[in-house]
């Protein structure tokens, strides 16, 4: 058997998937045992799939681990050792010693249990906090990645008309077809009103609704996907009644910036 041809045939990938019949799988396994190159190839395929699968998963909270662990190991509390007393000093003395020792062990055991509980609690809190920080860090990282992407362009949207004090910034990524708007330069929208983002073609002036800029907890950033077929020559932000409008109310055009 030529090893290279065997690898190129693609059978090892099917083997790792588990897509072969049992008999075929056993054959493959025999060959792998004979040839270290096949073993290495199978491990590489497996590693790639392993990473792919982990990569597609959403974040797995530590509580999940705790639940499974509790289910599997709940009955395995450490057993206390039984002290056998040989009744050389008489039954009564033995009994009284036993009672005393049990008392001491009981008290000790209780305080150890208490301590253990506290440690477990604080470990859980730390894990949760760590989880939160990890996800925060990733979130920041993905923002930085977006902002520093070579296809991301920053567009300043200065205040218009009566709203000279306002401003906004748009970060447009033409390969992801996504725009991220930084709203920090806009006053808070009054109750019952909402900011709305428009894509504008200038000649003739054609506005296209890109969506509402709802206040979010995300540090004043709002991310919006853009139809790749849309021509955007400028971004404008107007203040509209809640739910948004079909066409922009130009008297309340707060900011506008050319792409």
């Amino acid at each position: 058997m030529k090893i290279k041809e065997y690898i190129e045939s693609g059978i090892l990938e099917l083997y790792v998937y588990g897509a072969l019949e049992e008999a075929e799988s056993k054959e493959v396994k025999k060959k792998i045992d004979l040839h270290p190159e096949l073993q290495a190839e199978v491990e590489a395929i497996e590693l790639a799939l392993h990473r792919l699968a982990s990569g597609t998963a959403s974040y797995l909270p530590a509580t999940n681990y705790a639940k499974i662990k509790a289910q599997l190991f709940k009955n395995k509390q450490p057993k206390s050792k039984i002290i056998r007393l040989i009744p050389i000093i008489g039954y009564a003395a033995g009994l009284s010693l036993f009672v005393t020792l049990s008392g001491i062990f009981y008290v000790k055991n209780q305080s150890v249990k208490q301590e253990l509980k506290q440690i477990v609690n604080s470990k859980e809190r730390i894990e949760l906090e760590n989880e939160r920080l990890v996800s925060l860090e990733q979130e920041y990282q993905s923002k930085i990645d977006f902002l520093t992407d070579k296809n991301t362009k920053a567009i300043f949207l200065p205040g218009q008309g009566n709203y000279q004090e306002s401003f906004a910034q748009a970060f447009l990524n033409t390969s992801d077809n996504k725009v991220v708007i930084d709203l920090k330069g806009l006053p808070e929208a009054p109750k019952g009103m909402v900011y709305q983002l428009w894509s504008l073609e200038l000649n003739p002036l054609t506005p296209t609704n890109l969506g509402l800029l709802e206040p979010s907890t995300d540090n004043g950033f709002v991310s919006i996907n853009i139809n790749p077929n849309l021509t955007t020559e400028a971004f404008g932000i107007t203040l509209e009644p809640a739910g948004g409008s079909a066409t922009p109310t130009l008297e309340r055009l707060y900011t506008l910036g050319k792409v």
Binding site: R51, Y59, Q138
Partner: peptide, 18 residues
């Protein structure tokens, strides 16, 4: 879907490869 949910950690790195 996960990337858009914004609270997912692991998909961010792999998304661009996939």
């Amino acid at each position: 879907t996960h990337a858009s949910l914004n609270n997912q950690v692991n998909s961010i790195g792999i998304e661009k490869f996939i």
